[in-house]
């Protein structure tokens, strides 16, 4: 016959282990707050060192950082647009501006990627805005995901010799 005290201790251990195991199992596949990471890195692949002035047609090398914490696989499309001070963009509405380039990535949950980008602007501009918008594939169409970034830049004409 097993001692009652031993039984009680074993029961308590089983109870604690059972509760912990069940809670882990339930919490493991749940994403409390789904979100996507979206960042623009400088030429050194760091936050900072962004160019402030470029020449017309000069290649601008930057990096896009994307991270998926949405709890499911995601198909991202990033549109690089060229705007100015008057260009309107917010979480609800994408910018109505010229598209310079587009980049795409398919990421499973918990993964991230860094995409090298090369852009050039074909005309001189003061206070130009390089706007990057995150879109996601929703069904058969891409839908604006409400995340956007911008880089203010001056584009100067090259000096004539």
């Amino acid at each position: 016959m097993i001692d009652e005290e031993v039984t009680a201790v074993v029961v308590a251990l089983v109870l604690v282990a059972g509760v912990m195991g069940a809670s882990q199992l339930l919490a493991s596949e749940r994403v409390a707050e789904p979100f996507s990471e979206f960042g623009l890195l400088g030429p050194e692949m760091k936050i900072g060192g962004y160019p402030k002035t470029v020449l017309v047609n000069e290649t601008l090398r930057l990096y896009l950082y994307l991270g998926n914490h949405e709890g499911r696989v995601m198909y991202y499309r990033v549109l690089a647009k060229l705007g100015d001070e008057s260009t309107k963009v917010d979480e609800a509405k994408p910018a109505e501006a010229e598209i310079l380039a587009e980049y795409e990535a398919i990421l499973p949950h918990g993964q991230n990627t860094t995409i090298p980008i090369s852009l050039s602007i074909k005309r001189p501009m003061n206070n130009a805005r390089l706007i990057f918008e995150m879109w996601i594939l929703d069904g058969e169409e891409f839908r604006y995901h409400g995340r956007w970034l911008q880089l203010w830049i001056n584009v100067t004409a090259p000096r004539l010799p």
């Binding site: 039984t7 009680a8 029961v11 308590a12 089983v14 059972g18």
Partner: peptide, 28 residues
Amino acid sequence: ATLAISTSLIGLASIMAYIYAPRAFWSL
């Protein structure tokens, strides 16, 4: 299945704790 077994174990352990814990407590 794991979840069902865990839940059953928790239930069983709770019943056993209800029966044995007071006796074990007072004897201790």
